[in-house]
Design a binder for these strands. Sequence first.
DNA 1: ACGATTATTGCGTTCTT
DNA 2: AAGAAAACAATAATCGT
Length: 315
Amino acid sequence: MTPLVSIMATREIYETTFDEDVQTETESNQCPECSGRVTTNAVETVCEDCGLVVDKQRIDRGPEWRGFDEDERERTGAPLTAARHDRGLSTEIGRGTDANGNELSGQKRRRLSRMRREQTRGQFQSKAERNLAHGLGEVRRIVSALELSETLRDQACQLFRSAQNEDLLVGRSIEAMAAASVYGACRCNRRPRTLDDVTDPARVEQSRVTNAYKTLNSELGLPAQPVTPSAFVPRLASELDVPDQIRQRARNLAEESEATAVTTGVRPSGFAAACLYKAGHEQDQLLTQSEVAEVANVSPVTVRTHREALDELAV
DNA sequence: ACGATTATTGCGTTCTT
DNA sequence: AAGAAAACAATAATCGT
């Protein structure tokens, strides 16, 4: 029997969390993570202590479609977004034509071009704002490379903002913090993404992303939740192109194992791979260990050892 | 510095064709 | 019989306390 204390020690690798049941939905004015007070502004409801976005988009910021012509509408334009440094409220000075599409005289064009230059200079009032724009750009790039949802992107951007507000960027690179923000958002939403997945499109060493995430997690008290093997099953299953039956069986296997303690401290993706392997063999679909190991980014040996754990469980 | 998980490598065994 | 796959064992590397 392994001593319990060491399990507690290593599980932190994959299950950084501060409270076991953080997922409970609270309608009240308390943060589900740290019980701090939450405040609601026009954009979202955030916890004052930890920065957790409890709720968002209470207010419909979409265009008003009821009005039939322009002056009946009171709200128009693109919705505000946390994903841009100016929350999407930028102004651009066009070139070439006036509002009616007519050509402009050379004199006016020169004047406009001077104005444009001054305006782009004025867009970033400080170095911090420039960094923010850069960071949010990186976050957007990584998020789209990983094909994550828009809400997740906004949360990641919000994380990056918080990180900057808390001066977590000093001594760290913007790219690393951007990647860490994306990973943090994934963890808070139980998205089956590994640190490798997030680091891959980022242009930094993984160690720096790890470092950034660690400080992000501890300083901001992220409501990071353990990502379970069952969350990885669908993703691996689609990469392997296995039938639904096997996918569901693998998911069941994973969930049953999670009920016991055998999945604590192990790489979720590796365990999910073992579940898929076992499920495939139960239904005479020959998946090789190296196949499943490869899509999960683990070694075949890992798949084997976890399959043994699964066998003992089923009896 | 220690313990746990995982990767890597090498090697004899089992299964398939 | 030949080749692939799974099993086993020993060692190294990594990570968190």
